[in-house]
Computed example of a mutant assay.
Amino acid sequence: MLDSRIRPFIDPPLNRLGHWLALRGVRADWVTALGLALGLAAAAAVLGGFWLLALGLVLASRLADGLDGAVARASEISDFGGFFDIFADFVFYAAIPLAFVLADPAANGAAGAFLLASFYVNAASFLGFAILAEKARMRSDVQGRKSIYFSNGLLEGTETIIFFVALCLFPAAFVPLALIFASLCLLTAVLRVLAAARLFRRG
């Protein structure tokens, strides 16, 4: 919901930095891999209870996630790059909640399982929509130039980052925050399924 609103503010500096890196031979896949490594390090920090470190690593990981696309646009956008970017995002999105569950299974286990299940359902709706959009040759630059079609939704990348930041700042509130966010994830998936039914039912 917020991604398209903040892109006009974050894209110009990211594109300038991405162009600078591309001129120096940095590849987008390298930046994606760095973002994934930082995200997994953030999960490890959560597991160890180092909340401020986890917060910094989460933000650094998402900076790299935005920067890899800028590097790709300044050099070459590839199908593998789009695949690797989505793969890295989903690994990161799973790793942070899993770290909270492993840190305190008794307190966080049920809410964490519900959250991860909602991520799975939302991801299925997102990727399924992208497949149908590609088949229908749909294109959109609302989320920036992408290798696959990015359908918008109630919850997108920006909201997920805000959620993870809130978890790092208020770890004791994991259960209520996870339950609320998971419910909104499921609502996002339902809305996307309804949109797909409206757009692709005759295909």
Rank of each mutant, 00 (worst) to 15 (best):
M1N: 13
D3L: 15
D3K: 11
L14R: 07
R16C: 10
L21I: 06
L21P: 00
L23G: 14
R24P: 07
G25D: 12
V26K: 08
D29E: 11
V31I: 11
A33G: 12
L34K: 02
G35M: 06
A37Y: 10
A37E: 06
G39I: 02
V46E: 00
G49T: 03
F50D: 11
A54S: 04
L55I: 12
V58E: 03
S61G: 09
R62C: 07
L63G: 11
A64G: 04
A64I: 04
G69A: 05
A70Y: 04
S78A: 10
D79W: 15
P97R: 14
L98C: 11
A99V: 02
V101E: 02
L102H: 07
A103V: 07
G112S: 13
G112D: 10
L116V: 10
L116T: 09
F119K: 02
Y120I: 15
V121F: 01
A123Y: 00
L127R: 00
A130E: 04
A130G: 07
I131N: 02
K135N: 13
R137L: 14
R137D: 15
R137A: 14
M138P: 00
R139T: 13
R139W: 08
S140E: 04
S140N: 03
D141C: 08
G144C: 05
K146W: 09
I148S: 05
S151F: 04
N152G: 14
L154Q: 13
L155C: 05
L155I: 08
E156N: 05
G157E: 03
T160H: 00
I162W: 13
F163E: 01
F163S: 01
L167G: 14
C168L: 10
F170D: 06
A172V: 14
A173F: 05
V175Y: 03
V175D: 00
P176H: 06
P176G: 03
L177E: 04
A178Y: 14
L186H: 09
T188F: 09
R192I: 05
A195N: 12
A196V: 08
R198K: 08
R198C: 00
R198A: 04
L199C: 01
